[in-house]
Every structure is written in structure tokens, then in C-alpha cells.
């Protein structure tokens, strides 16, 4: 089957074949492409970016991401979790707002440095 690697903007077109329980990949420019293809066939994983609400002035919402990948099938569960979080104070970039999400060892961290801007 054909896959497009999403690891980096190169977007390598991968030709993937599964034989005897092993995954064979052609078309990848680097090893990460092979790893991606293997995961995509067995347990597709995604890193997710989203928003959580805040009560801090000037920031109705703040951007967050998973600091690792979670199973693709759990993306909407993660979104539900994001809906329930409210940040109530200015946080520096990289602050953990939820740890070990959905039974993984992945955390949800902020990706914007909240400054009280001089407006």
C-alpha cells in the first residue's frame, strides 16, 4: 500500500508492504519514515495540538500539545479532556496542564508563553 509520511515536511511517499508479520518500506528518505510506516500499519500514533480555556485576561484560550504521540483512535477522547481544562493563571510555555493523559505517559503542555502584554 501507499502511505505519505507525515513526520516531516518532506512528505515522503512510502510504498509499504506487509509480509510474514514484517513491514517493508520503500521511498523513505530517513529511518523515521520506516518507523512511521510500521506504526501506521500496526498502531497509528499522532501528536495532537489544541486549545484549553483560560480565565487570564487577554487569553480566552491557550494553545497546548501532547508532548508525545497518542493513539490516533484516542484523539477525540483527548479533545474531550481539553474541553474540561481551565487555566486560571499565566503559565510559562511548556507547563503541564494534564499529565499522563488517557492512560499514556504523554502530558498535555502549553505551547504559548503567557505574558501579560503591555496593551
Amino acid at each position: 500500500m501507499e502511505l505519505v509520511c507525515i513526520v516531516c515536511p518532506n512528505g515522503c511517499r512510502l510504498d509499504v508492504e506487509q509480509r510474514d508479520g514484517r513491514v517493508f518500506v520503500v521511498g523513505n528518505k530517513c529511518k523515521r519514515g520506516a518507523d512511521f510506516a510500521t506504526a501506521e500499519l500496526t498502531n497509528p500514533m499522532r501528536s495532537v495540538t489544541s486549545l484549553v480555556k483560560t480565565t487570564v485576561r487577554g487569553y480566552p484560550v491557550i494553545s497546548v500539545k501532547t508532548d508525545g504521540e497518542i493513539p490516533k483512535s484516542k484523539i477525540f477522547q483527548l479533545m474531550k479532556l481539553c474541553d474540561e481544562i481551565t487555566v486560571s493563571q499565566p503559565l510559562p510555555i511548556g507547563s503541564v496542564v494534564a499529565s499522563g493523559v488517557l492512560g499514556t505517559d504523554v502530558n498535555l503542555v502549553t505551547t504559548t508563553n503567557m505574558e501579560i502584554a503591555n496593551e
Binding site: 513526520v7 516531516c8 515536511p9 501528536s47 495540538t49 489544541s50 486549545l51 494553545s63 500539545k65 510555555i93 505551547t111 504559548t112 508563553n113
Partner: peptide
């Protein structure tokens, strides 16, 4: 641009826009 994919060439990491 809160999605990730920024900086792969420069930093070898998938950063979000604000990061």
C-alpha cells in the same frame, strides 16, 4: 498557528507555531 510541524528543518523537531 497552534498546529505542529514547524522547525523540522532547523531544529529537527516538530514545534507548534508559538513554540
Amino acid at each position: 498557528c497552534i498546529h505542529d510541524g514547524f522547525g523540522v528543518v532547523r531544529f529537527g523537531e516538530k514545534l507548534s507555531g508559538p513554540e
